[in-house]
Lab assay of single mutants.
Amino acid sequence: MAAAAAAGAGPEMVRGQVFDVGPRYTNLSYIGEGAYGMVCSAYDNVNKVRVAIKKISPFEHQTYCQRTLREIKILLRFRHENIIGINDIIRAPTIEQMKDVYIVQDLMETDLYKLLKTQHLSNDHICYFLYQILRGLKYIHSANVLHRDLKPSNLLLNTTCDLKICDFGLARVADPDHDHTGFLTEYVATRWYRAPEIMLNSKGYTKSIDIWSVGCILAEMLSNRPIFPGKHYLDQLNHILGILGSPSQEDLNCIINLKARNYLLSLPHKNKVPWNRLFPNADSKALDLLDKMLTFNPHKRIEVEQALAHPYLEQYYDPSDEPIAEAPFKFDMELDDLPKEKLKELIFEETARFQPGYRS
């Protein structure tokens, strides 16, 4: 834990890192770190609560700039109880001085990944967590956004079992017609939660990839272990087919990539493993919904509104309290091709509203 900075004593240090967030945020305490930044909790002297502050230093890398800009653009436009918001952003007053960006968010005690390492969940908890994931996802999908990296560590939890989806750095506007060349190379989302079509096709992607990830998360809540822990690309596919069985001819016809289709045709026939054999203690309604989410063919996979209306979630289902976005989200430009200098300018502009004396 960093010592509390005395008023006016300059930035606090946390594990050798400068955290320049005073005077409003003090009493910093280390939480963890990701690929390009550290997260601390801090005391907000204005709202009198502890908050989470993520320090991001992305400006050396085009990919990190892209992810940072995506996350900020999306989260500043989203407003939903099951999606983490941005409360404040701290950065230098000029673009030349801006080396880091500090993002202030609600402090959540833990995440689903940490929880599943230590606790076996009751059916009631599984049901409530799944409902909140789908409630947040309904809003995301209504904005025409794909999260693309749903996994237990991106689901934040607090002691009252509130759940918030975080990390929109890989999110995209849904565009089933656009052929994202190089899709697989830039697709760094965790393999275990990846839909089979991501490994088999490169053309376009749809909201059904997020539903697949939610199915993987439900299976993990039922058993405290990942359902498809593939060691590499082909191993991942083999794990999936080992449980779902061989795809039907109709399902194979959806695979545009001939090499991928021929690979699947070359494999020995596998039978589907019954879900109640894998999860003998699970609620039968939970397994019915799991089956509809972990469907090989993305066109037959359940959609988020149908999933919310499934009998497993009937005690929570309330369409009048499951809000959607006001308007579909649009990125003005494809960020993939922009140089990091341009992305830095866009991050600077996007964060201006939090600067003292800002006038829109």
Rank of each mutant, 00 (worst) to 15 (best):
T351E: 12
S266D: 03
I74T: 04
L137V: 00
K207S: 13
K73I: 15
L156M: 11
L200Q: 14
M199R: 03
Y233D: 14
R148H: 04
D111L: 02
D288S: 02
Q105N: 08
S248C: 09
E250P: 01
H299A: 05
L252H: 07
A3F: 04
Y233K: 11
Q17P: 09
I324L: 13
D20T: 11
C216D: 05
P323V: 02
Y30E: 01
K164G: 11
H120W: 09
Q236G: 08
G182E: 13
G204Q: 13
R91I: 02
S320K: 07
P247H: 15
A52L: 06
H141Q: 11
R67K: 14
R261Q: 14
I72D: 03
L163M: 10
M98I: 15
N158E: 13
G34P: 08
Q315I: 04
R91C: 10
P11Y: 04
A307K: 01
V46E: 07
L115S: 00
H125T: 09
A42C: 04
T295V: 04
A143K: 09
K114I: 15
M221L: 15
V101Q: 07
F354Y: 14
K272N: 15
D167S: 02
I103T: 03
E197P: 08
L335K: 09
L335R: 05
E341S: 05
I56D: 09
Y131E: 05
D332H: 08
G204M: 11
G230E: 00
T295N: 12
F279H: 00
A6G: 09
D106L: 00
S202F: 11
Q355T: 02
A35F: 08
A7H: 08
A309I: 00
H141S: 07
R191P: 12
R301C: 06
P328H: 14
A3N: 02
S213R: 15
H232L: 15
G242H: 09
A282G: 00
K151Y: 04
L234V: 11
D251V: 13
G32V: 14
N158I: 15
S29V: 06
E71T: 00
E71M: 13
Y187I: 00
A5I: 04
P58L: 10
I255A: 07
L294M: 13
C127A: 11
V273H: 03
Y263F: 15
L313N: 05
N87P: 03
D44V: 10
G16N: 03
P226M: 06
E326G: 06
V188D: 14
F19Q: 13
D336G: 03
N276K: 15
E341R: 10
A307S: 14
S246N: 07
A143V: 11
Y102E: 08
I198S: 04
T94N: 13
N297H: 12
Q315R: 07
N87I: 15
Q62G: 10
S122E: 08
A6E: 07
G37Y: 12
G245V: 14
P268Y: 04
D235A: 09
N201K: 15
N257D: 09
I209W: 12
R225Y: 01
